[in-house]
Nucleic acid binder design. Structure first.
Lengths: 249, 249
DNA sequence: GCACTTCTTTGATCCAGCTCATTTTAGTAC
DNA sequence: GTACTAAAATGAGCTGGATCAAAGAAGTGC
């Protein structure tokens, strides 16, 4: 860690992170759908979760495996991907702390429909889906909140479908950059820096295109001064210009 | 209605359908997420719904309008579409009786994210989303059931994303036919007939392709004996062959 | 039966983006 | 600084589908 780092990305700091009971409690309180629960209830629920750590690139579970756990990102980023037999891959979601993933099906009857991979070093809390179900049934407000989150995900999945079907690759990538900026962007000297490792392949998998095409488009964006980018990192310099690309011709 | 009909599709029979209180109750009981409620509770809830009829092709609401109602299909089919300014259209979902659509957002703060159109003559029940929220909060089992339905929709939306990004148009259409067959198929003399009006354009909008390409592919499928098709209707003759197309090369 | 509308088919052309192949570069380790 | 590695860029050629254009059914109303 004492190396000369040139990436603008924040140094991985998982060491600093300890999932003590207190930290865990605090983190769970930040999760969208646990907001508004009183401290005691939260504490009870918190006991049912257990924490685990993953290093960047490490798979958390695989598509097709028996789905038994619901998980929550506490630290780091997690990507959800789907693969074809012939190695093609697409990235369906990129999660940040506070988001849930995995299974919430009735009693582990089903299998995971996607593979989850730690995009950076990450800390994950998990709970058996049976237990989570009982939480949902005991606390309707939580169930409704989870429903809201899921509905939003559904809407954005449908938006992505719309984009895949109607927009050029350039517009799709511009759009993805904007979304990532809103979600992972942090002010920095090089512009709004996306605080997660992000390769051309990741971008390509999000946009449903080839790595080469993604690369070409990113090069063009950089030349035109819309972004600054290096190996595995991207910073947005001109957000408005991206918007124009999307609406333009 | 006494015309010489040549379509194999069932004659529209909305006239036969009257949304009396009893019928309504019965229908609501069939809705996925109301199952398991006792008769009395259901009756109470039922009172909060009101019924309306739409004729084939009639819009139910438009994308961007203020979202105030949650609706349930009781009779007929409803399609959800998204449009681009330049008239391109994509079909994100095709609903059958028992499915819900519209808004379930907190107190009508949001707008509809898609346009809903009656695909055939249809009867729809609707409830204010505020009221529906209170139902959810009062009956956790319903909230959890709605969550399950929504999670399934999310999974299939992501599958569609995967398909758009990785499969050829031919495979996508084969897949769509299979799914429609499972959902709307009915045994008939011409094979599994899809019991809903379905144009080439609808198919194209589902597959994210042009009407012409959809038409070409359907012609090929018919020549190869996989389907029988006419104006606005499709019947699947060889389900297995469709599967082979999807997995094949 | 005839006219009219709307859906479907088919043909011909063109280009965005994929593929394959290779070079360049950023970032890391020593 | 030097060496090494994996990511990114770039070039060239090919093709699946889009687009444009026009002819051919199917269904409806009179």
């Amino acid at each position: 860690m004492s190396q000369k780092r040139t990436t603008p990305l924040e140094a991985p700091s998982i060491e600093k992170h300890h999932c003590t009971v207190d930290v865990r409690l605090e983190k769970l309180g930040m999760v969208q759908f646990f907001r508004g629960l009183d401290r005691e209830t939260l504490q009870q629920i918190s006991k049912k979760f257990s924490a685990s750590h993953f290093t960047a690139g490490q798979p958390i579970y695989y598509e097709g495996e028996k789905a038994t756990l619901l998980r929550v990102v506490v630290f780091g980023a997690v990507k959800l991907i789907r693969q074809t037999e012939d190695g093609k891959e697409i990235l369906v979601d990129m999660l940040k702390p506070g988001e849930y993933f995995g299974s919430l099906n009735e009693m582990g009857e089903d299998n995971y429909t996607e593979t989850a991979v730690a995009q950076s070093d990450a800390c994950i809390l998990s709970i058996g889906n049976r237990e989570f179900r009982s939480v949902l049934n005991a606390h309707p407000s939580v169930a409704v909140a989870v429903l809201d989150v899921t509905t939003k995900k559904l809407n954005s999945a449908r938006e992505q479908i719309h984009h895949l079907a109607t927009l050029s690759v350039e517009k799709r990538i511009a759009h993805i950059l904007k979304e990532l900026c809103a979600k992972f962007g942090e002010e920095s000297k090089v512009g709004m820096l996306l605080q997660l490792p992000l390769s051309r392949k990741d971008l390509a998998d999000m946009a449903g295109t080839s790595t080469e095409t993604a690369s070409r488009i990113m090069s063009r964006f950089q030349q035109d001064g819309l972004i600054t980018t290096g190996r595995q990192w991207v910073a947005i310099k001109d957000y408005n210009a991206l918007s124009e690309i999307i609406s333009g011709n």
